[in-house]
């Protein structure tokens, strides 16, 4: 009975949504509201106003920088939530990971991963640093880096991955993104502008564009490093299982 009701509900929702689709503005129409309003300033002035050739980066970090600050806080919240549910690793305890089986990943996987990893790392770094002029940016690069680390973990084991990126490093870097945002924001505030204005106090107007570029890079780096670390911490928290040694610590 409940099933039938739910199915009817979903069916009705689908029909309504399709009806709605037919009364929405035509897709790809240059005159539709989405392509007509607000957007022209981004397209025409972003390069000059934000100093980024990639307009998306300009929108993410400048026009809607506050959203991005919220975004990095969301992912941090995700980490804090996972840790609140599953707990943080503690010193002096022994943890096991689900891939502890004696069958190791094959030589092909390991050597392929070993071959690919440097390229992935390089690519992610490039994505972070080059986000202003080509597709990419802090978070994109951080995600690529995290995916690379996951590949490492799949090939060489989570235990080893946990050693390669030790907890201490992760604890320090996890909060990097919101903190850099906050610092850059407050710097803009002290510089006489608004929060997130990418300004520093006592910098002459001539240096402003260069300063903006450097501060943007700083934020991108913070997002990239913080994002990658958070993903790794989340994976480790999901994967690990306590096996003993707890009482002594």
């Amino acid at each position: 009975m409940k099933k039938v009701v739910s199915l009817c509900f979903i069916g009705a929702l689908g029909v309504l949504l399709l009806m709605l689709v037919s009364s929405m503005p035509r897709m790809g129409d240059p005159g539709s509201p989405t392509n007509r309003r607000v957007v022209d300033r981004y397209l025409e002035k972003a390069e000059e106003e934000t100093g980024t050739e990639n307009v998306i980066t300009g929108v993410i970090l400048n026009y809607r920088g506050y959203d991005t600050m919220g975004e990095v806080t969301v992912i941090f919240t995700g980490l804090a939530a996972v840790l609140a549910v599953l707990g943080r690793e503690k010193r002096g305890r022994v943890y096991a990971y689900p891939d502890r089986s004696p069958v190791r990943s094959s030589i092909i996987v390991r050597s392929a991963a070993g071959f690919l990893l440097p390229f992935i790392a390089l690519f992610s770094l490039y994505t972070v640093l080059h986000g202003e002029i080509s597709p990419g940016g802090g978070f994109q690069g951080g995600a690529v880096m995290a995916a690379g680390m996951f590949l490492f973990a799949a090939a060489f084991g989570l235990w080893k991955a946990g050693r390669t990126v030790p907890p201490r490093l992760r604890f320090a870097v996890e909060g990097a993104a919101p903190i850099t945002f906050f610092l850059v924001g407050v710097a803009g505030l002290l510089g006489g502008g608004e929060f997130l204005a990418y300004m520093l106090p006592r910098v002459s107007a001539g240096l402003q564009p260069a300063l903006r570029t450097w501060l943007t890079l700083l934020v991108e780096g913070g997002i990239g490093a913080g994002g990658a670390m958070i993903f790794i911490s989340v994976l480790m928290a999901l994967a690990r299982e306590e096996v003993g040694g707890g009482q002594a610590a």
């Binding site: 840790l83 943080r88 909060g175 903190i179 906050f182």
Partner: peptide, 15 residues
């Protein structure tokens, strides 16, 4: 933002 950033500092204090 003040509570937001303070929240982010907490894991560093976890040890």
């Amino acid at each position: 933002t003040v509570p937001l950033v303070t929240a982010v500092l907490m894991p560093a204090l976890s040890h």
